[in-house]
Design a protein around this nucleic acid. Structure first.
Length: 486
RNA sequence: GCCCCCAUCAUCUAGCGGCCUAGGAUGCAAGAUUCUCAGUCUUGACACCGGGGUUCAAAUCCCCGUGGGGGUACCA
C-alpha cells in the first residue's frame, strides 16, 4: 500500500510558518516512502476563511518548494480538495452516525452552554457538555428538526473506558473517556467541525499517516472514536512539537513573525527556511568531513533520506530568528554571484542598472544576512549626494587640517593614476599613508567616509572601482569642501 | 479547575545503561588575519530541573515533586 500524507491548512489569515513546518515533515515522509502528498483546504470556518488566504498558502508552499501531488488547484482522483465543496459528504456521514446512534442531535443554545460551563468552572469541575440532549428520543429530535429548530450533531462518547492510540513520536497515549467531551460534529450552519470533516476526508482520501501539530493530541481520541464509529481503520498518528516563541509559549504573531510572506519579503531564502525548519525538532547526522556550520546545513533531500518519526524531538523548539539569520547568511554566501543577482531582483529598486548590480554583488555577498538588506548595504552607490557627519572624516589623533591635507593629496594621486584598478588604488593609498606617517587604516577611513558616507563598507578600493572615477572624484571633492565646516 | 504532552549549555540539538571528566551547531567572549565591516581560522565560558528508587553501573529505566507547554469552542 502506498502511503498518503496531507497538509490541511485553514485559509484564515497569513500563511503560517507552522503550516510549512508540518508540511515539510509530511512531504519528507511521503517522498521517503514513495507515497503521495496531498494539500487539502479546511475552510469549514465560514467566518474566518478567505480565498485570498488560500491563494497565499499556495504561493508560500510553492515558494518553499513544498509541492503537492493532489490539491484544490492541481486536482487529483479523490477530490474535491476543499472542504467547503464536500458538504454533502459530511452531511451523509453525519446522518449515518445519527442512524447508528453514535451521534445525537443537540438543541442546547449557546447561552445555556455558556451558563453550564461557568457553573462547571465555579464548581472546579472539568468543562464538558452535560449531556442534556444525549437521551432525547430520536423521533422527538427529528420532529424538532423538521419543525425548523436549529440543532447541532454531537458525537456520543462512551461514559466509561479508555481510548488510546500510538503516536509515532511519543508512543502510546491514553485518555479516559469520561474526560472527553461530546464533540460537536455538525454546526447549526450545516458545516462540519474540524473533527468530523477531518476524519471523513482523511479516510476518503486514503490518508495513511496523520502528521500534525501537538495541539491536536487531546482531540485525537475523539477522532479515534469517530473512525471506530464508522467502522474505519484509523491512520497512524504523529504529533509534531509546537514551534515556540522565545518565552516558550506556542508561536504567535504577537511575539514572533509567523507569516511566510514576511520571511519571503525579508529576503530569507526558501532553502534556508526549509533547512531551519527541519532543524526544529529534528537533526541529521553531519555528512562526511563536514565542519562548523556545515554540519547543520543540508538540503531537503537529506530530510527525505533520514526522516524517522521515532527520532523527532518531543520538546517544543524555540523559533530562533538569530539562528535562521545565520543559516540564511550561510546560504547566501554559498550562492554563485549570478544566482544571487537573480534572487536579488525582487529586492532591487526598479530600473536599477544590471551592470551596477553585477559590480556590487561580489562586494556585498559576504555581508548580506537577508536579501532585504541589499538596499541599506548599497544605497551609497545609487545616491547623488551623501549625507554623513563631517566629523567622521577626521581620524582620532589627527588634526582636521592634516586630514584635509591627506585627503587632498590622495585626490591628486588618484587623478594621476593611469589605470585606477583596485591594486593601483591600494598601492597609491599605502604609499601616501607611509609618506604622511599615518596608519593605513586612518587614511582609508577618511576615503571610505568620503566615498560612501559610512564607516562600515565593502573593501574600499574595490568599491571605488565599482563606482568609477567619474563618481568617486566628485565625492572626494565634496568631502574636501566639508572640512570648511569643521 | 480538569485532562494531556514535555524537561541536556542562552538557543537548536547528539546521547536511546557502561564509549560522558556529556559531543556538535548558533550566539557570546578572547585572539589571529585585516583599510572598516563582514568572512575565515584558533581558543574560551556555558547544560543533564530536584528528590527518591532499580542496577555492579543512570543524562539514559521507574516513581514523586517542581517547572514549562497545549487542550478544555457550533476555531482550526
Amino acid at each position: 500500500m502506498t502511503v498518503r500524507l496531507r497538509i490541511a491548512p485553514s485559509p484564515t489569515g497569513d500563511p503560517h510558518v507552522g503550516t510549512a513546518y508540518i508540511a515539510l515533515f509530511n512531504l519528507a515522509f511521503a517522498r521517503k516512502q514513495g507515497g503521495k502528498f496531498i494539500l487539502r483546504i479546511e475552510d469549514t470556518d465560514r467566518v474566518r476563511s478567505s480565498p485570498e488566504s488560500e491563494r497565499m498558502i499556495f504561493e508560500s508552499l510553492r515558494w518553499l518548494g513544498l509541492l503537492w501531488d493532489e490539491g484544490p488547484d492541481v486536482g487529483g482522483p479523490l477530490g474535491p480538495y476543499r472542504q467547503s465543496e464536500r458538504r454533502d459528504l459530511y452531511a451523509r456521514h453525519a446522518a449515518e452516525l445519527l442512524a447508528s446512534g453514535a451521534a445525537y442531535r443537540c438543541f442546547c443554545s449557546a447561552e445555556r452552554l455558556d451558563t453550564m460551563r461557568k457553573a462547571q468552572e465555579a464548581a472546579k469541575l472539568q468543562s464538558r457538555y452535560d449531556g442534556k440532549c444525549r437521551t432525547l428520543a430520536r423521533a422527538e429530535a427529528e420532529a424538532r428538526v423538521a419543525a425548523g429548530e436549529p440543532a447541532v450533531i454531537r458525537l456520543r462518547i462512551p461514559e466509561e473506558g479508555v481510548t488510546s492510540f500510538v503516536d509515532m513520536i511519543r508512543g502510546e497515549i491514553r485518555i479516559e473517556n469520561r474526560t472527553i467531551d461530546d464533540q460537536v460534529l455538525m454546526k447549526t450552519d450545516g458545516f462540519p467541525t474540524y473533527h468530523l470533516a477531518n476524519v471523513v476526508d482523511d479516510h476518503l482520501m486514503g490518508i495513511t499517516h496523520v502528521v500534525r501539530a501537538e495541539e491536536w493530541i487531546t482531540s485525537t481520541p475523539k477522532h479515534v472514536l469517530l473512525y471506530a464509529a464508522f467502522g474505519w481503520k484509523a491512520p497512524e498518528f504523529a504529533h509534531m512539537p509546537l514551534l515556540r516563541n522565545s518565552d516558550r509559549t506556542k508561536i504567535s504573531k504577537r511575539k514572533n513573525p509567523t507569516s511566510l510572506k514576511w520571511y519571503e519579503a525579508q529576503g530569507y531564502l526558501p532553502e534556508a527556511m526549509l533547512n531551519f525548519l527541519a532543524l526544529q525538532g529534528f537533526s541529521v547526522a553531519p555528512s562526511e568531513g563536514a565542519k562548523g556550520f556545515a554540519t547543520e546545513v543540508f538540503p531537503f533531500s537529506r530530510v527525505v533520506e533520514t526522516i524517522d518519526f521515532a527520532r523527532i524531538c518531543t520538546t517544543g523548539p524555540v523559533f530562533d530568528l538569530i539562528k535562521l539569520g545565520e543559516l540564511n547568511a550561510h546560504y547566501l554566501r554559498a550562492l554563485a554571484p549570478e544566482e544571487l543577482e537573480r534572487r536579488l531582483a525582487p529586492f532591487v529598486k526598479p530600473g536599477t542598472d544590471p551592470a551596477a548590480m553585477h559590480a556590487l554583488v561580489p562586494l556585498v555577498k559576504d555581508r548580506l544576512k537577508r536579501l532585504g538588506e541589499w538596499e541599506e548595504l548599497t544605497d551609497f552607490f545609487f545616491q547623488e549626494s551623501l549625507e554623513y557627519d563631517a566629523k567622521l572624516l577626521v581620524p582620532k589623533k589627527v588634526e582636521p587640517a592634516a586630514a584635509r591635507d591627506g585627503l587632498g593629496r590622495f585626490v591628486a594621486a588618484y587623478r594621476a593614476l593611469p589605470a585606477p584598478t583596485a591594486e593601483a588604488l591600494d598601492q597609491a593609498g599605502r604609499a601616501l599613508a607611509q609618506e604622511l606617517g599615518w596608519k593605513v587604516g586612518d587614511l582609508f577611513m577618511i576615503l571610505r567616509v568620503a566615498v560612501t558616507g559610512k564607516t562600515a563598507t565593502p573593501p574600499l578600493c574595490e568599491t571605488m572601482v565599482a563606482l568609477g572615477r567619474d563618481r568617486v572624484l566628485p565625492r572626494l571633492e565634496a568631502a574636501l569642501a566639508r572640512f570648511a565646516t569643521l
